[in-house]
């Protein structure tokens, strides 16, 4: 896959996270975490609960600030930009709790997805696209989003993120709290989104599903990257199998 190039001919990844340390209050949550995502790639972060996976994506989204290291997206320092600016640059996070505006209608939630001026200009096209992806949302566009089922709320969260025209979509535990049949649906949608050219950074506790979808993955343990590489290779790795798949 072709990578970007800066003026001096240095090749760079679409997203480069370079040795970030992050603290929650006084406690260090991440130690020198580095990772990369290329254009149009699906990369997965796997690891146990509390390992720091959510912290990583929240830091990329600029909701948290690293104390050292840097984060670059298409060469721009994300860690120096406020969270709303990160969205403008094309990086969108679907947070673990989905982050919907529960008292507002589905339509209003989607319109807020296209809040940045560039995405607002093309929102009619975006609406068509997300309604095609999730026909149920068009039928329910006037319903208050807080009254939707869990699966439908996850659809609104994904659809809202797509409305912002992201180049990189970060999904934090999209399968959480959903029935298996719906999880399968959501994963298929994520795959389709990726096929349309959007890079995906997927945080997932369902390791088998995540490694099935992503080409590459990073294993996060206690705030550090402890393994990385092709999903196939990780699936075959004995240590990974023992820790996350229960088939040592």
């Amino acid at each position: 896959m072709a990578r970007g190039q800066d003026a001096s001919g240095w090749r760079f990844w679409m997203l480069e996270v370079n040795k970030i340390d992050v603290f929650h209050g006084g406690l260090q949550a991440l130690w020198e975490v580095s990772l990369n995502v290329d254009e149009g790639e699906i990369v997965s972060l796997i690891g146990a609960n509390g390992a720091g996976k959510s912290t990583i994506v929240e830091t990329i989204a600029s909701l948290l600030a690293p104390t050292s290291g840097d984060i670059r997206f298409e060469g721009v320092r994300l860690d120096r930009e406020p969270a709303h600016k990160v969205v403008t640059l094309g990086v969108c996070l679907i947070p673990e709790e989905r982050g919907l505006f529960p008292g507002m209608s589905v339509l209003e939630n989607l319109e807020l997805g296209a809040f940045t001026p560039a995405s607002r200009k093309v929102r009619e096209i975006s609406f068509k696209l997300v309604y095609e992806l999730f026909p149920v949302l068009e039928a329910r566009k006037n319903q208050i989003s807080g009254t939707l089922s869990g699966g439908e709320q996850q659809m609104v969260a994904i659809a809202r993120a797509l409305m912002s025209k992201p180049k990189l979509l970060m999904c934090d535990e999209p399968s959480q709290g959903l029935a298996p049949i719906i999880v399968k649906n959501i994963f298929e949608v994520i795959k389709r989104i990726n096929e349309s050219g959007v890079g995906i950074l997927l945080v997932e506790q369902n390791v088998r599903a995540a490694l099935g979808l992503a080409k590459r993955a990073y294993v996060i343990e206690n705030g550090r990257v402890t393994a990385q590489g092709e999903s196939k290779r990780l699936l075959a790795d004995e240590r990974v199998r023992e820790a996350y798949l229960g088939t040592g």
Binding site: L63, H84, P95, G99, P102, G103, L112, F115
Partner: peptide, 24 residues
């Protein structure tokens, strides 16, 4: 208007508003 949409998103969830691109 769009202004009202941005304002209401802050009432609903300020962090989520910031994360969807609203300069809160």
């Amino acid at each position: 208007s769009r202004i009202g949409l941005g304002m209401m998103s802050i009432r609903e969830d300020e962090d989520a508003a910031e994360a969807t691109g609203v300069n809160t």
